[in-house]
Simulated scan of single mutants.
Amino acid sequence: MHLAVSLDIASVTGRAGLTLAEIAGFVRKVEAAAVDMVAISDSWPSGKPSTSPFEATTLIAALATVTEKIGLVASASTLMHQPYNLARRFASLDIISHGRVGWNATMRQNPREAVNFSRPEGFSDADFRRRAQEYIGIVQGLWRGWDADALLFDKAGGRFHDPGKMHMLDHKGEFFSVRGPLNIARSPQDTPVLVMSGLVEAEFDFAARFADVILLGDGSPANVKAACDDLKPRAIAAGREPKALRVLATILPGPQLTADRLDDWFETEPCDGLNFTLPADLSALDDFADRILPNLRRRDLARPARTGATLRGNLGLGTGGER
């Protein structure tokens, strides 16, 4: 069973948030316990605005320098970034981390983001969905713009690259026009891992076709398993291999998450693993590291070793070009 931790660095309003040293210390703890990935979210909550000293992609760049094996996933809004710049940023992060990076593309629209990026009226749900899907397709297309062996660096022959292995995107769609390709080579894990969250049923077909990892919302074990059982056949119907998609059930840890409640999750065999969502609060991180992780170890779920050198390898995923 795969394990992930989602850390919301903008969820605490009473203080400036965790320090880099505190976050890095926690990430190293869960790395030692063979947790597959840590996902960093920094979007504003729906209520009172909060502050954080970090932006998610900048933070995972720093975490990449103090970790060696754990996957590092950052959320980045499709409203706050242009697709070319976002694709370039994550491709660069993936090279910095030696293939351990993923992008969490949430499908939830946040009005607080829209008003800061020239969209005070926001989008209708249908328009936002179509725009986000087009955006994700552009990013993935840009990530595949260079074949792994496209760059030759043949100084004697005067050839920088093999033109036949460079692929122009030439995208002209409803919301974006992007020519491509990126000015960054293919990443060590082929492409960064695409994580999708905040899904409603209308987005299941798209996510099952394009996502590498889906984080399902918090719910009962039975409801989450039903959603997982719905997603996997959709991925196969889209022509994907059964193991090309990982679906993780989200749990909100706290004092109420007892050993018995963990047993309820494991008895229903919920999807491919669990994603534990934590606030950026030191006591919550300590509780997870000192209470929840030992329970997982006792169930042989905190694996002693990883099987791959990249996040894709550790999750047992195929290459990002297999679509």
Results as ranks from 00 to 15, higher is better:
A284R: 10
P270G: 04
T258F: 05
N275K: 03
N275C: 03
D286H: 06
P253V: 02
G273D: 13
T307G: 11
G318D: 08
I251M: 00
L301F: 05
A289E: 14
S283Q: 01
T268F: 12
G313H: 12
L285P: 00
L274C: 07
T258I: 05
L296V: 13
P304V: 08
I251R: 01
N314W: 14
D272C: 01
L296S: 10
T250Q: 09
D300R: 01
A305F: 14
D272Q: 05
R291G: 04
P255F: 09
P279K: 01
L285C: 04
G308P: 15
E269I: 00
R306V: 12
Q256A: 00
G316C: 12
F276V: 06
L274T: 04
R261N: 11
L293G: 02
I292W: 11
L285N: 05
A309V: 14
I251E: 01
L317C: 13
L311D: 14
P270Q: 11
D290K: 05
C271T: 12
A259M: 03
A309D: 15
L293R: 11
A289C: 07
A280G: 07
L311G: 12
N295D: 14
N275E: 02
D264F: 02
F288Y: 10
G273F: 10
T277C: 08
P304T: 09
G318S: 09
L282N: 04
D272F: 02
L285A: 00
D290T: 07
L278G: 05
P270M: 06
D263W: 05
Q256R: 07
A309N: 13
D272N: 03
P304C: 09
D287G: 03
D263T: 04
L282A: 00
P270V: 09
P294Y: 13
F288V: 05
L296M: 15
C271A: 13
R299Y: 10
T277I: 11
F266S: 07
T307A: 08
G254Q: 06
A284Y: 08
P253I: 00
I292G: 08
A309I: 14
R291V: 10
R261Y: 13
W265R: 03
D272R: 03
P270L: 02
S283N: 02
N275L: 02
R297P: 15
E269H: 07
N295K: 08
L296H: 14
R299K: 04
R303H: 14
T277D: 10
G316N: 13
N275F: 00
D281N: 03
I292S: 06
N295R: 12
D300M: 00
E269C: 00
T268M: 10
T310I: 12
F266H: 07
A289M: 12
E267C: 04
T277E: 10
P253N: 01
T268A: 07
F266K: 05
F276H: 09
A305Y: 15
D300Q: 00
L282I: 04
L262G: 07
F276T: 05
D300K: 02
L274H: 07
L278M: 07
F266V: 07
L262D: 13
Q256V: 00
R306Y: 15
I292R: 06
A305S: 12
G308Y: 15
E267G: 01
I292P: 15
S283W: 04
G318K: 11
G273V: 10
L252F: 03
G313W: 14
R298P: 10
G318A: 06
A284L: 02
G273Q: 10
A302K: 14
A249H: 11
D260R: 03
